[in-house]
């Protein structure tokens, strides 16, 4: 029998070039490949699992998020919720980003223990599966695909989160005197070949919030904004921001506020 040769026009290959072999051309080539992959982003696999989790009755209280969790647009409503967070939630008396809000619903509505979720909130390199919370975040984010970021910055509490996040981004400390802005405060900067978005600009902030949740082809893992903030502080030589804390929400509010009015393309795909 004749085996077909029609196979793959686009295989997700995980690659690692020696640093010295990377050039600007390689960057441009990779960008083309990445754009092509947006059409078949493996993030969709995590969306599917997230949707199942959203609708399933789970946790000690045996309720689904679909029947209990209000992301700001009404109980169970996910369409357009992602691009309108962070926002203020009166029931929690806090401004929350999307991931933090889902965690809140899981603890308050479903009865999960926060410590259990926070124990391993991110997919490790080469872990076969992403944590439930990552799948849920990916599902909720995907339900805002092709909608404009519309964080309610006119709300004083959201504004406070935004301004505090802005001040946090400028805060220098630690052995290397770094702040977020050391790398992300000006246009056209790179660490090695990695382009660094200027998070104070609308374009740069959009890159920040567009990227996460995102599928990272290296290692084949799905990662969220909460993870991105966490790993940035590692590289900043800081201690660790607590998972789903106000500190992380503030930074996400700062970026989302700067990205307001621009189109969200749905979960990202990254090198």
């Amino acid at each position: 029998m004749k085996r077909s040769i029609v196979m793959a026009t686009a295989l997700t290959v995980t690659w690692s070039l020696p640093a010295a072999a990377q050039t600007k051309d390689a960057n441009a080539e990779f960008e083309k490949f990445r754009a092509e992959m947006e059409e078949s982003n493996p993030a969709e696999l995590f969306e599917l699992k997230g949707e199942e989790l959203w609708k399933a009755k789970r946790g000690p209280k045996n309720v689904s998020l679909a029947e209990s969790c209000d992301l700001g647009q009404g109980i169970g409503k996910v369409e357009g919720a992602w691009v309108k967070m962070p926002r203020y939630f009166a029931d929690a008396d806090a401004v929350m980003d999307g991931e933090r809000r889902i965690v809140w619903c899981m603890t308050e509505k479903q009865g999960f223990k926060f410590a259990d979720i926070a124990k391993k909130p991110f997919q490790g390199a080469n872990d076969n599966n992403a944590p439930d919370i990552t799948n849920l975040v990916t599902y909720v984010a995907s339900a805002s695909k092709n909608m404009k970021f519309d964080m309610p910055l006119h709300d004083d509490k959201v504004r406070d989160a935004y301004e505090t996040g802005k001040a946090m981004a400028a805060y220098r400390a630690g052995p290397y005197d770094f702040s977020c802005n050391t790398c992300h405060g000006a246009d056209g900067k790179r660490i090695r070949m990695q382009n660094l978005p200027n998070l104070s600009s609308p374009e740069g902030a959009l890159r920040g919030v567009q990227g996460w949740p995102g599928y990272r082809m290296t290692g084949g893992v799905m990662l969220t904004s909460q993870w991105r903030m966490n790993d940035c502080f590692r590289q900043q030589r800081f201690p660790e921001p607590k998972y789903a804390s106000q500190a992380v929400t503030n930074l996400i509010a700062y970026m989302t506020g700067n990205a307001n009015g621009q189109m969200y393309k749905g979960p990202g795909i990254k090198r």
Binding site: R3, V6, M37, P42, Y215, G220
Partner: peptide, 21 residues
């Protein structure tokens, strides 16, 4: 049947297959 193929370990995690016919 339009594709009957064998695959191996050179293909990444969570693979994507695309083709036009």
């Amino acid at each position: 049947r339009v594709v009957d193929g064998q695959t191996g370990t050179a293909i990444s995690r969570n693979p994507v297959f695309g083709f036009k016919m």
